[in-house]
Measured scan of single mutants.
Amino acid sequence: YFQGQLNAMAHQIQEMFPQVPYHLVLQDLQLTRSVEITTDNILEGRI
C-alpha cells in the first residue's frame, strides 16, 4: 500500500467517525490495511 491509498482510506473513515483523531485512524490503518477492520476497531473502542 502506498501512503496516498492509506490517506484516502483514513479520510473515508473520518467521514464516518469525525470524532476520532486522523492520526489515530491512519496509525491503525497502517497495521490493518483495511477500512473494515479499522472501522470495527473504532466501534469496539480499541481506538
Rank of each mutant, 00 (worst) to 15 (best):
I13D: 00
V25S: 00
I37A: 10
V35M: 10
L43S: 06
Y22R: 13
Y22W: 09
M9Q: 06
L26G: 00
Q3K: 09
R33F: 13
L43V: 10
E36Q: 12
E15V: 12
G4T: 11
V20S: 03
Y1H: 13
I47K: 01
F17K: 02
N7E: 15
Y1W: 10
Q12R: 12
I47N: 02
S34T: 02
L6H: 04
L31N: 11
Q19A: 09
I47V: 10
S34W: 05
E36S: 12
L43C: 07
L24R: 05
S34M: 03
Q3W: 04
M9H: 06
T39C: 10
A8Q: 11
T38L: 00
P18V: 03
Y1S: 14
E36K: 13
I42A: 02
I37C: 09
P18K: 05
Y22L: 15
I13C: 02
V35D: 02
Q5E: 15
Q30W: 14
Q3T: 08
D28C: 10
V35I: 14
Q14T: 11
L6I: 11
Q3M: 06
E44T: 14
S34R: 03
G45W: 05
Q5N: 08
R33P: 02
Q3E: 15
L6W: 08
T32N: 03
Q12A: 12
G4R: 10
Q5M: 14
M9V: 07
I13G: 00
P21R: 05
N41F: 04
V35E: 04
Q14M: 12
L6T: 04
T32I: 00
L31E: 11
D28M: 06
Q3F: 03
Y1N: 15
I42N: 00
I42P: 00
N41K: 06
Y22F: 13
L29Y: 01
L24P: 06
E15G: 09
T32Y: 04
Y22P: 14
L31D: 08
Q3P: 14
V25I: 15
A8I: 11
P21Y: 06
Y1M: 13
Y22V: 13
T39H: 05
L31K: 13
A10C: 05
L29K: 00
T39S: 08
E15I: 13
L24V: 12
Q12D: 07
R46L: 08
G4M: 10
N41S: 04
T38E: 00
T32W: 04
L6F: 07
I47C: 05
Q14C: 12
N41V: 05
